[in-house]
Design a binder for these strands. Structure first.
Lengths: 154, 154
DNA sequence: TTATTTGTAACTGAAAGTGATACATATAAT
DNA sequence: ATTATATGTATCACTTTCAGTTACAAATAA
């Protein structure tokens, strides 16, 4: 799996946290520690899937196309990897029957696994992800504040 | 996912079909349409996991270390990919809190998916796979015989 | 008209994977 | 013992994939 899915969730989470105002690929890339074009490539896919809308020019950027409680992580996954993604590679193709049948058997197993993943992703909305991530960020920040306090006290 | 898992299932299925006699990497590679070394690399992992035993020298090769109904596809999967395999990549690491937390969140989701895959693989034995694959091979061969017959008749 | 931002194409460098060659090690047969 | 065979690995070459970058066209607000 490439990094499009994490980037997509980051974009959606970021837009949710912002709550309305448009965000540029530049800003999101800075926070994520990557290049704006990398973000835009994913942005573009999310746009085509109807999850966000993007506007060019001054004051442009992206906003959510639906409310965050109406976007599931499955929507995001399918937007960035439309074709089966958990399939194994197979060695150089040959016309023998046995390896072909075994290969198809393995593919079916992996497709089932991907279906299970999709069903699970469908139960989580971007809104819920946002809440979870925020909670953890608070915890992480508190922890680092605590450790600084301990250091200062010692 | 790399092609080790399909190759592992091919090896195990092949040894099951043979039913006792040792098979060389040379023979299996020929049927699979790949290089003997590629097969041996997977053989080696299956050996270390205790699923097959391999012997060097004249008359050597590999045999199943247990009965095929006592080897699950999960055993094969874990033998060839010990570490989580469905994880997404992440862009260049940075020390910001947000991308780290989002990245961990995504990793957890994918680990859950892999757990589901493993549980499913656990319910299928090499013996059962062998039966399924054999049945399909017979069907495929019959189909091609039928089509030859139709051609001959026309 | 100008500044800004998306949308893409094209290129580079790095990483992973498959396949191949080579050779050491083990083992059975002679 | 010697020889032939097969595994076990190291190493290299080739391909593919991906992240990151540069460059530029198209759109849009000021």
């Amino acid at each position: 799996m490439n990094s499009d899915f994490p980037i997509a969730l980051h974009i959606l989470g970021f837009l949710t946290a912002r709550g309305g105002g448009p965000l540029t690929s530049e800003e999101m890339a800075r926070t994520y520690g990557t290049n704006p074009v990398v973000v835009r490539r994913v942005q573009s896919k999310l746009s085509k899937a109807g999850l966000i809308t993007s506007k060019r020019g001054v004051g442009g950027g992206s906003v959510l196309a639906r409310r965050p409680e109406e976007i599931t992580l499955r929507n995001a996954y399918e937007a960035v990897s439309p074709e089966p993604d958990i399939l194994p590679r197979h060695p150089t193709s040959c016309d023998e029957v046995v390896p072909i049948v075994v290969g198809e058997f393995v593919n079916e197993i992996c497709r089932d696994a991907e279906s299970a993943l999709l069903e699970q992703l469908e139960t989580v909305t971007v809104k819920e992800m946002d809440r979870t991530v925020r909670r953890r960020i608070r915890k992480a920040l508190n922890a680092s504040r605590e450790s600084r306090k301990r250091k200062a006290a010692s």
